Measured scan of single mutants.
Amino acid sequence: QEELVKAFKALLKEEKFSSQGEIVAALQEQGFDNINQSKVSRMLTKFGAVRTRNAKMEMVYCLPAELGV
């Protein structure tokens, strides 16, 4: 569980995922086979993730800066 949270936060820091499906796929690539869209959705809510525009003006998920991840 701890490893999943770390990987999840690291992915969001990249600010390149525009959908929950993309986050699920990226986590599965890292070996988290039991991850699915509903789990990702709950984690996004739990950590207060928001959708914002990145440098390329794409809408992407990211974590609020005050979490200091």
Rank of each mutant, 00 (worst) to 15 (best):
K9H: 11
C62N: 05
K9I: 15
E3W: 08
L11S: 02
L67N: 13
N36C: 04
A26L: 05
K46H: 14
E3G: 10
N34Y: 12
R53T: 10
R42Y: 14
K56C: 03
T45W: 09
V24T: 07
K6R: 12
S18G: 13
K9A: 08
D33I: 14
K13L: 13
N36Y: 05
A26C: 04
Q28K: 14
E58A: 05
Q28F: 08
L67K: 13
T45D: 14
V50D: 04
M43R: 00
V5M: 12
E22Y: 03
A25Y: 08
A25S: 11
V60Q: 03
A65Y: 10
Q28R: 14
F32M: 02
N34V: 05
V69D: 15
E22T: 05
S41K: 14
G31C: 02
I35H: 01
F47V: 12
V69N: 14
G21S: 13
A49N: 03
A55H: 10
S38N: 13
R53D: 04
N34T: 11
G48I: 02
A7S: 07
K46D: 15
L44H: 00
L11E: 00
G68P: 15
D33M: 14
Q20D: 07
G48K: 08
V50T: 09
L44P: 00
M57V: 03
A55F: 04
P64A: 06
V60G: 02
Q20P: 14
M59I: 11
K56G: 07
T45H: 14
E14L: 15
T52S: 11
I23H: 00
T52H: 13
E58W: 03
V50I: 12
L4T: 03
E2K: 10
R51D: 03
V60N: 02
E66H: 09
A49F: 04
G68E: 15
F47L: 14
D33R: 13
A10N: 11
R42H: 13
Q1D: 14
G68A: 10
E58L: 07
G48A: 05
Q37K: 15
K6Y: 09
A7H: 06
Q30S: 07
Q1M: 12
S19Y: 09
R51S: 05
N34L: 08
Q28S: 08
G21Q: 14
V50G: 08
G68K: 06
R51I: 13
A49I: 05
F47D: 01
V50Q: 09
I35N: 00
K13R: 15
K13D: 06
M43T: 00
L27S: 00
F47E: 06
A49V: 08
Q37L: 13
F17S: 04
K9V: 15
E22D: 11
C62A: 14
S38K: 13
V50K: 09
M59P: 06
V69W: 03
G48T: 02
E22M: 11
E15V: 06
G31S: 02
R53S: 07
P64Y: 04
S19C: 04
N54H: 03
E15A: 13
E14R: 06
E29Y: 09
D33C: 10
F17V: 04
E22H: 06
E58T: 05
A7M: 07
I35E: 01
P64H: 04
E2W: 12
L27Y: 00
M57D: 15
V69S: 12
R53Q: 13
E3S: 13
Q28N: 08
F8P: 00
Q30T: 04
R51M: 15
R51T: 07
A7C: 15
A7L: 07
V69P: 14
R51L: 15
Q30L: 15
M59A: 05
L11H: 02
F8H: 01
N54S: 04
L67C: 12
S41T: 08
M43I: 04
S38C: 05
A25R: 14
L11D: 00
A25I: 12
A26F: 11
S19T: 15
A10P: 01
A49E: 03
A65M: 12
I23S: 00
V5F: 14
N36R: 06
D33L: 13
G48S: 05
S18A: 11
V60T: 04
L12R: 00
E58G: 05
N36K: 06
K56H: 11
I35Q: 01
D33N: 12
K46P: 01
G48E: 05
R53W: 07
E3V: 09
D33W: 11
A49C: 05
K13H: 09
N54F: 02
I23Y: 02
Q20E: 15
E15N: 07
K16E: 05
N54Q: 02
L4E: 03
P64E: 04
K46C: 09
S41D: 14
K46W: 14
C62E: 04
N34A: 10
V24G: 02
A65F: 12
S41E: 14
G21C: 05
S18R: 15
N34P: 03
M57F: 10
Q30K: 09
F32R: 01
Q37A: 12
K39R: 11
